[in-house]
Design a protein around this nucleic acid. Sequence first.
DNA 1: TTGTATGCGTTATCAC
DNA 2: GTGATAACGCATACAA
Lengths: 337, 337
Amino acid sequence: MNIGEIARRAGVSRSTVSYVLSGKRAVSATTRQRIQAVIDELGYRPNASARALKEGRTRTLGLVIPPANQRLTDMQLGFVASVVEAAARHDLDVLLSPSGGDHDRSFERIVTGRRVDGVVLMEIRLTDDRVTRLATAGVPFVTIGRTAEPHGMSWIDVDYAALISRCVHHLADLGHRQVALVNRSAELVAAGYGPSHRALAGFRAATAERGLTGIDVCCGDDTASGEAGMTQLLATHPQVTAVATINEAALPGMQRALHAAGLSVPGDFSVTGVAAQHWAEDFRPPLTAADVPTRDMGAEAVSLLLELIATPGGTPRHRLYAPPISLRESTGPARTR
Amino acid sequence: MNIGEIARRAGVSRSTVSYVLSGKRAVSATTRQRIQAVIDELGYRPNASARALKEGRTRTLGLVIPPANQRLTDMQLGFVASVVEAAARHDLDVLLSPSGGDHDRSFERIVTGRRVDGVVLMEIRLTDDRVTRLATAGVPFVTIGRTAEPHGMSWIDVDYAALISRCVHHLADLGHRQVALVNRSAELVAAGYGPSHRALAGFRAATAERGLTGIDVCCGDDTASGEAGMTQLLATHPQVTAVATINEAALPGMQRALHAAGLSVPGDFSVTGVAAQHWAEDFRPPLTAADVPTRDMGAEAVSLLLELIATPGGTPRHRLYAPPISLRESTGPARTR
DNA sequence: TTGTATGCGTTATCAC
DNA sequence: GTGATAACGCATACAA
């Protein structure tokens, strides 16, 4: 089933069928209707490969996600969902590439096979080979997260430094003197994971500014790690009365450890941080936290990418999100343990 | 950058370059090396659209997921991850289509635009338009889940009826006389969601067989719904001493409700069901449950699909998974409340 | 061992 | 208002 078959059945040339489809040339009402009838009857749609070859664009966006062997965090999942949704609104398809390793066939196909018109890159590191790879290959791309030197590229990111800083100030205002940061996993930090490093920087700056004692610990992205990490923190730093975290998946475990230690929140201990809304609302009591607007961010990433594709010589743009801290019920005045 | 450019630089014809790439014809070592050098130098890779047009296949699989506006369950996420991973192992890309509504552009593009060689369909209903759509369009497809009449199609599925039946028998063996099934949401059930219906059928058959009183309730896929649902269940059916569930996302809420009611698990109340391993292990105490092998299932779906693509006239195959119930610590002898 | 020619299905330029 | 035709980049049957 191709355009020639439609043309034959409608008794017209292929170009006329093409112009009915694109509307780029006037076609008389009668022939247009005749052609449209045949198209509808046979359920014809142009072959995507042929069209892509001819037009030089695929109407497809690439989305590079973390390797499939590790479970996506809720925030990552939120980005994926919103990117896919935003792309669909523009009638664009999304090609998934689970990339993170060194030599990645899937990623290479995307970069150099002209399979996509542009790429959204997730989970990037402070120094990230994939970014330079895409840049040299001349593929338009937008990153969710940013490298250490993001000048000249399009990106969106959460301002972890500012958000964690705000959390610390909030805790300081409540009278807390020793606070801890529960970060993501040590592996991630070692790999130069931006959010971890920037959150830590913000934490250190804020604790210094307010004269607080700041402890920072790494923690795996799961309940068990959260429980173990919090248990250890409570044992080794008995003076700590509050934590801020960017590790949403550890929250249930942290809660469990606090409960096991006989500490009530926020009476004996305060908890705050940055988390997807779902985690914050499921915490008991509901978590005072910055809710990351993953939905808006994915849409914005697609928007920036389309801009980049439309105007190849255009100026890259970026956007740093610092959503407000939603005051819920997990933080309160300091009380010595 | 195309094959002609490579040929020009290497001083050979385009076909020779093509044959070096494919290895389908002998090429002298010297010219091969010369060509390969140029290819490596320029980082050339064949244009995917041109190749797809010529070969009649895209080396891409479609993956139809639930609409992006609702959060994916962990099980769904597991399927997506394993399908993507399995496809990558075969050097295939995955095109995502968030479809569920009635008239879906993204899905139509996939079906009729020849963008993919085959489709993996998730979250299908007992009667599912998309299945008939794909079948009439002649697109090879495999479903994760199955329709009411899955004869003649390739599918994989979890045997919810058998698993829930086993759970009920396990509870009956422990002396429970009144048990409940916590199902997925009422909307899903009304929409003809297969797992819900089959779990319910298995539940009814098993309770009847063992002479138990069986209550079944629907419950949204989140903590809050789980808590509300369990709270209500405990209030309206004080004789119930155990539940089986297929709603993993409701587990934390159910746990919370049991705790609030002063019921200990498994001392006062038993909990079991079907859940991704992660949920079972995070439950306190760890949940006696059938762990759905999402990883294997996604890989098997891809395997079946590739088989279908390779032999268009071949016999469809299917596979029903009934993983064993992992005995952990959330079930115990019945004790009247 | 290598080169030439054709066609995959489309869009767009040119001609009428 | 419509038709013929030339690319897009590739793989391969056919020649040499």
